[in-house]
Simulated scan of single mutants.
Amino acid sequence: MTITGTHPEQRAKTSTAEPDSRDRAITIAQWVLVFASLAAALLIPLAGLGSPILACLLLTVPFAVIHGTRRYGWRRFLTFFIVTFLVSNAYENLSIVTGFPFGHYHYTGGLKLFLVPITIPFTYFGLGYISWLTASTLLDRADERLNWHERTGRFNTFALPALAAALMTMFDVTIDAQASTVGHTWIWEHGGGVFGVPYTNYLGWWLCTYTFLQIFAVLLSRAANPSATVTPGSLLQPVLLYAATGLTTIPTFFTTSAGTTTDAAGVTWDLTAINETAMTVGIFTVVTAAFLAIAKIARGDTRTPR
């Protein structure tokens, strides 16, 4: 609708009111997802409702869509989603068939795309996004300084996806044995030394994640920097979501009953040992990395890149 008979200044105020209101609503939605994830991480085990991991991972997906399109724009963020979906699904199917790069395993259920449940690429997508931005914060907003024309930009283009892939792998170290050896969501056919999980799984996680994040970094390095206004809150939100995935291990340990479980290789593992190790690793990897990122934001180290 065209506004007529109005002073130019009034028209300007009218045109900006709606975007401002929309921005506030989007910000509130993002914070709701963050607090919901933190609440799920701590309260689901305490309420005796099982593992909170799935809830936390599901919440990263709508957050990534809302936050990512706001930060990078629809076109670049849609590219991120497509690259993540295709690369992760390809690696997972390749490993199920050949054993590379994760190892020999198979999924036990769920609607599948080829041999992989359709939900798995979405896990890579949501978790990959918050890992990417947590790593970016640790590297002083490196995602805004990716280019081939100066030394720091070239370094960031490779360092950021490498660190983000490591952060994402930290998460997998805390949950894979619980999901596979205990929960049997997927089965490691020959077992493994990490509570029934082979070490190759974690190398594969890093390689898979690094591949799609490196592609995204190269694409961003060829485009303009993100144009969205970056606030301490928008930096903090993905870090808190990442922290929530590590915090899940604490109440899970204190609320899980003792017992044993047997992997596909016939090795018996103690449930208390699995959960205690997951909690210890989670505190000193995922939670610690998130704490460092939060400290940088609180100190004001994540200043506007020049």
Rank of each mutant, 00 (worst) to 15 (best):
N201W: 01
A264F: 11
I294G: 08
V116C: 10
T108H: 00
V65R: 04
A159D: 12
A223K: 12
E189M: 11
V197C: 09
I28Q: 11
F212Y: 02
W188D: 00
F253T: 01
A224I: 04
T169P: 11
W205T: 12
E276C: 04
T84P: 10
T69D: 07
G99N: 14
T249H: 02
T256E: 15
R299P: 11
L203D: 11
W74T: 07
Y129R: 06
A39Y: 05
S234T: 11
R22K: 06
V286T: 13
F253E: 04
L219I: 03
V218S: 10
F216C: 03
V286Y: 10
T174P: 08
V173W: 03
R306F: 01
W205N: 12
T123M: 12
R70S: 14
V267K: 13
G99D: 13
V218H: 13
A228S: 05
A265H: 02
I82R: 09
F122E: 08
F80M: 08
T16E: 10
G103C: 11
T248A: 14
S21F: 03
F171A: 11
T14H: 04
F155V: 06
N89T: 05
T200P: 02
A162D: 15
L113T: 09
I250D: 07
R75T: 01
S257C: 10
E92L: 00
T285K: 09
T181S: 14
V34S: 08
A264Y: 13
T304Y: 01
G282L: 10
L115F: 02
M168D: 11
I120V: 15
I82E: 03
H104E: 08
G126H: 08
A29D: 03
T60V: 09
